[in-house]
Amino acid sequence: MKQAVVTGGTRGIGRAVADRLAAEGWSVLVLARTPIATPHRFAACDVADAAAVQAAFAPLARIDALVNCAGIAGANRLDGDDALWHAIIGSNLHGTYHCCKAALPKLPDGTGRIVNLASVLGLRGVPDQTAYCAAKHGVIGLTRALALAVAGRGITVNALCPGWVDTGMAHDRYAELGITPAQAAASVPTGQVATSAEIADAVIWLLRPESRGVTGHALPIDGGGLALP
């Protein structure tokens, strides 16, 4: 049975990924800061803490895939809260780095897979999302560099860059912007907000053998938003 580690796997996209992997026959270990009822194996872990990540991965002899979904967001400008800046960078960027570092020695050559959840905000800027944009740009840079570093091992590393996804985090952002879900959907060229299950579908494809030639990519899943002028 293939083994996967999914960070942030107790809610939103991470939960959808963990559930889909289990349905596909994978054994799933979920890492998250707060224990929540889950049918999957669970280890409490703040991915921003390098020692905690190493401890969570230590019992694992082998994993076949790492999916980094853990992350937090929040409105942030340079004249804002430094603590929020460090928290967002720590969870989204440092956490991805720590988990990739811990996973690499345990991933098999030829078939190992890493998928990092970035964002369309890793490909563009938003004025009040300074920390989140910086973190997600960093995740994409890390993805590209790491993909080249491990290409000789036959391990692929890719990033997914969702736009609006119907999650609790998105609804928090709607509240910050003072918009409704319908207004968010209307801003997408296709007129639809993605579901967590759709993002999980993309993750699953990137873990399959037929995706072995795809590495170092940052794939937008945004209903055409980045194609707008």
Rank of each mutant, 00 (worst) to 15 (best):
L123H: 11
V53C: 09
L78S: 12
G95S: 04
A87R: 15
P105H: 00
L107F: 00
V30W: 00
D81P: 08
T96F: 04
V30R: 02
P39L: 04
R62L: 07
D46P: 13
T96C: 15
I63K: 02
V120K: 04
L107K: 06
S119G: 05
R124P: 05
N116E: 15
L121T: 10
L107G: 03
A44P: 12
G110F: 10
K106C: 01
G122M: 02
P59N: 08
P39Y: 05
A73F: 11
A75K: 11
L31R: 02
G110Y: 09
H94N: 14
L117E: 10
A48Y: 09
I36E: 11
A48T: 12
C69E: 10
L66S: 14
G71F: 12
L123V: 12
H98L: 06
V120E: 06
A51V: 04
A102W: 00
A102R: 03
G74F: 05
A37D: 14
S91R: 09
A73V: 13
D79T: 13
D64F: 06
C100L: 03
I88R: 08
V120I: 15
D49W: 02
R77P: 13
D79Q: 11
N76E: 07
A65H: 07
T34V: 08
P35K: 01
G122S: 09
L93I: 04
I63G: 00
A65L: 03
A73Q: 14
L121F: 12
H86D: 15
D109A: 08
L117T: 11
G71L: 14
G71Q: 14
A65S: 08
Y97M: 13
A32F: 04
R62C: 09
V30S: 03
R41N: 15
C45A: 07
T34W: 00
A52R: 08
A73R: 12
K106L: 07
H40Q: 09
I114F: 08
R124F: 00
D79P: 06
P105R: 02
R113S: 05
A58F: 04
G112Q: 02
D81Q: 04
V47M: 04
A56L: 05
N92G: 15
C69W: 07
A75G: 13
W85K: 14
I114V: 14
L31P: 03
A55K: 07
A52G: 10
N68R: 11
F57Q: 01
A58G: 10
T111P: 00
D49E: 06
A118C: 03
R113D: 04
V67E: 08
C100A: 06
L66M: 14
G110Q: 11
N76D: 12
V120L: 09
G110E: 11
P39C: 05
P39I: 06
D79C: 07
I36C: 01
K101Y: 05
V67S: 06
A51H: 05
H98I: 06
N92F: 13
C69M: 15
V126I: 03
T96M: 10
L117K: 12
A37P: 03
D64S: 10
D81W: 02
A51I: 00
D109F: 01
A37V: 08
T34Q: 07
F42Y: 15
H94I: 04
I114H: 09
P35L: 00
V30D: 01
H98Q: 10
L60T: 00
W85P: 15
